[in-house]
Write a protein that binds this DNA or RNA. Sequence first.
DNA 1: GGCAGTCTGGTAAGCGCTTACCCTGTTCGT
DNA 2: ACGAACAGGGTAAGCGCTTACCAGACTGCC
Lengths: 353, 353
Amino acid sequence: MPRRATIADVAALANVSSATVSRALSGNYPVAQATRARIEAAVSELGYVVNAQARALAGLPTRTVGIIINEIVDSFYAYVARGVEQEAAASGRLCLVCCTHGDPRQELAFLDLLHEQRADAVILVGGSISDKRHAGEIIARGKSLRDTGSLLIHCGRATPSEDIAAVEYDNGGGAFAATDHLLTNGHRRILYLGGPKRLSTSEDRLEGHKRALASRGVEVDPDLIQLGGFGQRFGYERLKTVLAQGAPSFTAVFAANDNTAIGAYQALEEAGLRIPEDISVVGYDDLPAASLLRPALTTVNIPLEEMGRRAVRLAVAHGNEYADAYSVASHNVRLGTHLVLRDSVGPARRKRR
Amino acid sequence: MPRRATIADVAALANVSSATVSRALSGNYPVAQATRARIEAAVSELGYVVNAQARALAGLPTRTVGIIINEIVDSFYAYVARGVEQEAAASGRLCLVCCTHGDPRQELAFLDLLHEQRADAVILVGGSISDKRHAGEIIARGKSLRDTGSLLIHCGRATPSEDIAAVEYDNGGGAFAATDHLLTNGHRRILYLGGPKRLSTSEDRLEGHKRALASRGVEVDPDLIQLGGFGQRFGYERLKTVLAQGAPSFTAVFAANDNTAIGAYQALEEAGLRIPEDISVVGYDDLPAASLLRPALTTVNIPLEEMGRRAVRLAVAHGNEYADAYSVASHNVRLGTHLVLRDSVGPARRKRR
DNA sequence: GGCAGTCTGGTAAGCGCTTACCCTGTTCGT
DNA sequence: ACGAACAGGGTAAGCGCTTACCAGACTGCC
């Protein structure tokens, strides 16, 4: 059973020292053409593959970036991950993907695991729960990561500390635009559906919604705010429950994200309500599913992929000017969102005609 | 600027040797309660985090598994990745995810990168192009990987060699079932749409389709076989082209995968053809999008997540009985597929009534 | 009381690579 | 013609961890 070849084997076969082999391979030091050729021959003859662990241990960066997301099959996260992966691959880095399934403790556990792996950067994606203790834990790990030359970047979540860079998007603004669009179409009673409580993402969206209402002097009716989850299931069940309580007192629903909107579609369909004739719907995220729905869903677009790319760039840029990693005021980034008009919003129906 | 703490620092602070610290941390050797406590105190005081690279270099497994997929935002791959991630996480392993975007050369490049990383296992997902040279390259890397104690597993693709384990699914069987269902509904002229040529996945599906036709004595009409791609775009454009050539000569379309079916839906919609009244449609994969479509798409379910899990288990099981890694006849796995009936198939229309 | 067996813990040899430091020739500039 | 600068290459000291091997201190048993 062949043992894996080491640099020493290659060196022996090529009749040079292991230092020369190392130099020829990393190409950061002059090596004579002839020597290089002999080394390359030896490498392919032995099927030599450099050992990344040894390399990292010797002080080189690991060329891996970690990314912590909720759920890989959720398009929201998948697109961010794609951006991260692309940008990472562009610089020859590999991606360590971790899924928390929404468990904040997992978040911390993965942070530790990625620290063990000495990932060049770790990117934490998605809304954060509002919890002082948890935030503290994150900050501590951020510091600790930085002490090893790695960088923690928040992506799509506000930074809990000056020291942690973040790539955000105009979450409240998108919600404002969506609600404003509904208002412009004459809707005054809008059901706000979905979004876990105490999650920054939901809170920001709800805030934007309320701000839009306020800007037109529409009062918020607590009954029209139905928080709870970000899933299709939640959208379906909750809306069904609300609908079961009698004729809808609203003319539109603002689903806190597209998944919830999908659930809302089902509930509306079952209740025999037409979109947008009877009820208008807007979503948030602009996932591919939004344009698959019939009628196609009007929703807020987030530059998810770009966010992922930016996050990596932020981390890697810092990594380059190594000495500055400590002094640089983390250049936060905030990207814009915009409403994508499709077919799920119509004029508000006259009051029980 | 704090330097990262090493095991030696912890040892010094706890007044023991580094060996004892190592033992206390990995817990595979008796360490006195009191000593252990002192060590733990030192660890948390220093914020010590073990260095995975050093550990790996010292001979322990890296506890990472690599997975090579086409595209992370494609649900097909995302679900497999999810299974892999889950199973990996269950054994405390991290996942290195690589996306080839369909480029076979990338496949090889990532295989090398994962080899460098000494991943405990690497899982290659999705159809393979039919190319002797490429297959040879894969086999070579599989061997080389095994020489380092790692294992290459194929997932959703047939193994090119006895030495490489694979988790497959009954691809042809699913296609057979789909076509058979169409035949049962009276369809005789079925447009087979999509699937890149020379890709094992497409070839197997087409084979199942033809087999079903043959079993009912229906001849295959080459004009009704429209190969080319697996994307939504392809499905749309190609079907549009076909439709532009005059009244459809078929009563059903078998989309080689759900994405193609989505494109087909668009083309049909634009052409004013109703599903399933005018044209029936079946897809393949049973992605979440299939049930979002209206009418909901009848399609073939593949246990994607389970495949991912199995792949990891296959690799890890072998890893356990280390000595056998060489002798064990790779226990291939083949999972079943089944047709999911929804609303996109109806009885064949009478011939131009 | 002597000795085998059990607990604990230390010593030190690697794991495979990079790179600071050193050395030998060449090649130039002036 | 001579020192400087550079190309090319070797030596060996780590990087941080695990673990084989060894040793002292008890324990209990005959």
